[in-house]
Amino acid sequence: MSASLAADKCNPLHVDVSANVIRWHLIGMFLPAFVAGPMIDRIGPRRVASVGALVLAASVAVAVSGISVSAFLVSSFLLGFGWNMMLLAGTTLLGEGHDASERGHAQSLMELGNSVTATLASIASGVLIAGAGWVPVNYGVLPVLTVALLLMWRGYVARQATSRA
């Protein structure tokens, strides 16, 4: 995780800081699972994914605001929270896009893609932090979030047009 590496780089010899960054990231990743499902049922997966993307953008804003311990803790928590919302909403959307007979295969391919992407990102995080720095790595997330939000908006508009027809 690049946040714990950056926290260690900015606060050397404080292993507790890096451990707390990871701890708060994990809390952010799994605590929202208790409310994400009901939120998806109530407001829909696209809206929940959009909330997740906005939370990830807030994580970037906090991360680039400074190198204080609190900035690392809050940004890591928000990163996990946004990830959880987008993952659960994305899983729901994946299921909606496939027949029942295809869902298991589609889910397994998505999980493989997520795992490979997470592994490559983890391996690359040290190189990215050392080469580009903490702030540019965070800003690099924004174009991806923009594309995700545009795709969700496009899906929302398409669904509205279909429901009116």
Rank of each mutant, 00 (worst) to 15 (best):
P12I: 04
P12Q: 04
H14E: 13
H14S: 12
D16W: 05
D16S: 12
A19P: 01
N20H: 12
V21Q: 01
I22L: 15
R23I: 09
R23P: 03
H25W: 07
L26N: 14
I27S: 00
I27H: 11
F30W: 08
L31G: 07
P32F: 09
P32H: 11
F34D: 04
F34R: 05
V35P: 02
V35N: 09
P38N: 09
P38I: 04
M39C: 12
D41A: 04
I43L: 12
P45S: 15
P45D: 13
R46K: 14
R46N: 11
V48G: 03
S50R: 03
S50I: 10
G52Y: 06
V55W: 07
L56W: 06
A61N: 05
A61G: 11
S65R: 08
G66V: 10
I67Y: 06
I67S: 15
S68V: 00
V69M: 08
S70F: 12
V74P: 03
V74I: 15
V74N: 03
V74L: 13
S75H: 10
F77S: 06
G80Y: 01
F81S: 12
F81P: 03
F81L: 12
M85H: 08
L87K: 02
L88V: 15
L88T: 13
G90I: 05
G90L: 01
